[in-house]
């Protein structure tokens, strides 16, 4: 199997599948494929019925994955400006990708999800999901805008906008907190949600918050 990134502004991952080789991805990401490539569906049932309902109906995550089986070519895109990167995972190596950022994974990659709890403030952030991927295998993921990489030492921490988180090593800790905007009661009342990220491990941020992609223009 060979995965190439094509295009610069709205890139796609082009996969050359050998006979019998498979990749999985969310539905709706396929740009084109050879007629010889077969499509199947794989349900994702981690955690049982309760977790499935929570993930799909509350979190908006998919219940089914699409599985593409070779031989042939298939291309996948998130249909948004940004960068696509591929990552070869060694056996047992685990990375976490922000929800709706994974483009594809080879069928040897183990997939699971976990929930990063929000601050719980009324009318504020309620948390978000991340995809957890464990090798061996290859994944491709899409960063909205540009991708910024950081290698955090043990105990080294940065605070980030929660829409900026794209990828982290599994041992990088992330938790939501309220960042006061100055002192006093007003500062706390005007606080905003951010993520405290602490190493050790690799961290990648994206320069566009996908939940705010429309932005505002002057």
């Amino acid at each position: 199997m060979e995965i190439k990134v094509q295009g610069e502004l709205v890139p796609a991952a082009l996969v050359q599948l050998g006979a019998g080789e498979e990749i999985f991805c969310e539905a709706g990401l396929m740009v084109y494929s050879d007629p010889s490539v077969r499509l199947a569906i794989r349900p994702f049932t981690q955690g049982g019925l309760g977790q499935v309902i929570r993930r799909t109906m509350v979190g908006g995550l998919p219940f089914f994955f699409h599985v593409y089986q070779g031989p042939g070519y298939a291309a996948f895109s998130r249909f948004a400006p940004g960068e696509v990167r591929t990552l070869e995972l060694a056996a047992g190596q685990t990375v976490d990708i922000a929800e709706h950022s994974l483009l594809l994974g080879t069928n040897t990659v183990q997939y699971s999800t976990f929930y990063v709890a929000g601050t719980g403030r009324i009318g504020r952030m309620v948390g978000f999901w991340m995809d957890r991927l464990t090798g061996p295998g290859t994944i491709a993921y899409h960063g909205h805008g540009n991708i910024l990489g950081f290698d955090l030492k043990s105990g080294e921490a940065i605070d980030i906008d929660h829409g900026a988180l794209l990828r982290k090593d599994a041992n990088v800790n992330v938790r939501a907190f309220n960042q006061p905007l100055g002192g006093g009661l007003t500062g706390h009342a005007m606080s905003f949600e951010a993520l405290h990220v602490e190493g050790p491990g690799h961290l990648e941020l994206q320069t566009v918050d996908p939940t705010n992609r429309a932005g505002t223009q002057g």
Binding site: I158, D159, A164, P180, L181, G182, T186, M190
Partner: peptide, 13 residues
């Protein structure tokens, strides 16, 4: 519009 900041950076209004 803040994307990230180091832990020691202070923020105020």
């Amino acid at each position: 519009i803040m994307l990230h900041m180091d832990g020691q950076v202070k923020i105020a209004r």
